[in-house]
Design a protein around this nucleic acid. Structure first.
Length: 114
DNA sequence: GCAATGACCTGCT
DNA sequence: CAGCAGGCCATTG
């Protein structure tokens, strides 16, 4: 009930359609705070409404997921996103930040846009 | 009620 | 090109 930036985050995240993913920075920007990407993660951490907030659709700016904090594990998260229709691609040689096994979301084609 | 921390991102050196 | 530091709001102890 914090009618504030935090609540806006849930609104944006819940507004993400299937087969699409949004980045923390994007959600934060849509919430009205491009520099508050940090608190976006915190907002999802409290996750006041589990099952309603697709936190697994929220990924890093690089396309990697949140390792260790996923609801069931990066493997489950990847399978879930892939099952929804999200496209996954291997890490680029010049940009390898393996968040999980080295699979990153194709932000080029599956990043949710307003 | 005070203080500290937190799934990040951006800019500058 | 790469590495380092800072910043914001809210929640919890």
């Amino acid at each position: 009930m914090s009618g504030t930036f935090n609540a806006k985050v849930y609104e944006v995240v819940k507004c993400i359609p299937e087969g699409k993913v949004a980045t923390y920075g994007q959600v934060a920007a849509l919430a009205g705070a491009p520099r508050n990407a940090r608190f976006v993660g915190y907002a999802l951490h409290v996750n006041p409404e589990p099952g309603v907030i697709p936190c697994h659709r929220v990924v890093f700016r690089d396309g990697s997921l949140a390792p260790g904090f996923a609801f069931g594990g990066p493997d489950e998260q990847r399978a879930l996103l892939e099952d929804e229709g999200v496209r996954f691609i291997p890490p680029a040689p010049h940009h390898d930040n393996a968040g999980d096994e080295g699979w990153v979301v194709d932000l080029k084609r599956c990043q949710w846009q307003c």
